[in-house]
């Protein structure tokens, strides 16, 4: 039986306005802001696919895939 692949956030950089909400409220601290003030998934191993970043993103820039 194959293990179901965990969903990870895919961040659309062109839509991200860098408010930092996803980074601050990620329960696992998996996201960081890069030097361009855009959110990036820096630690994919920490991500549990809880979806909170997607739901709280005001720019609709995050989608779990």
């Amino acid at each position: 039986m194959t293990k179901k692949k965990k969903m990870k956030p895919n961040i659309k950089r062109e839509w991200c306005k860098g408010c930092g909400i996803c980074v601050e409220f990620c329960p696992e601290d998996a996201l960081i802001m890069d030097e361009m003030e855009k959110a990036v998934l820096a630690y994919p191993d920490k991500c549990t696919g809880c979806m909170l970043c997607e739901l709280r993103c005001p720019d609709l820039a995050i989608e779990l895939v």
């Binding site: 306005k17 860098g18 408010c19 909400i21 739901l55 005001p58 720019d59």
Partner: peptide, 26 residues
């Protein structure tokens, strides 16, 4: 998916960075 419910050509939207209205729309 969420993108099927929006008019993508108008994105990124006009709301300021961090504006709560985007969260409500989502």
């Amino acid at each position: 998916a969420v993108k099927d419910y929006i008019r993508e050509k108008f994105f990124p939207h006009i709301w300021c960075p961090g504006c709560g209205h985007g969260i409500i729309m989502g």
